[in-house]
Amino acid sequence: MAEKFDNLEEHLEKFIENIRQLGIIVSDFQPSSQAGLNQKLNFMISGLQDIEKCRQQLHEINVPLEVFEYIDQGRNPQLYTKECLERALARNEQVKGKIDTMTKFKSLLISELSKVFPEEMAKYKAIHGEDAPS
């Protein structure tokens, strides 16, 4: 998996570097630079071809659309990962809290019901077993 990304990364880096050099040539153009410019333009096309080839290897990769929003806002996309992990942990803790509370509630309910309806609770326990709430 990592190889595919490395391959794409390498092609993208080469492409960006070529574009940067193209920009430098264009920013102060001299007649002698025309041959170099033509070469860079064709190199840009071959770079696009290489990136296009990488696309086939990365079909199964899904990128969350929210990441694009971060990039469009000039923000570090790792912040998205960070926020996702933090949200996941917070939700995990919330759910655990609910489960713990419900477990305590069940325990209390069973003990109180056993006091008021001992016969019924004995039958209940016969069905469900002595599932003393954990």
């Binding site: 971060y70 990039i71 000039g74 923000r75 570090n76 996309p77 790792q78 912040l79 990962t81 960070k82 992990l85 933090e86």
Partner: peptide
């Protein structure tokens, strides 16, 4: 990602 501060800007990434 959560142990240390992640830099805010895209240029840091």
């Amino acid at each position: 990602f959560c142990g240390k501060k992640v830099k805010e800007k895209l240029s840091n990434f």
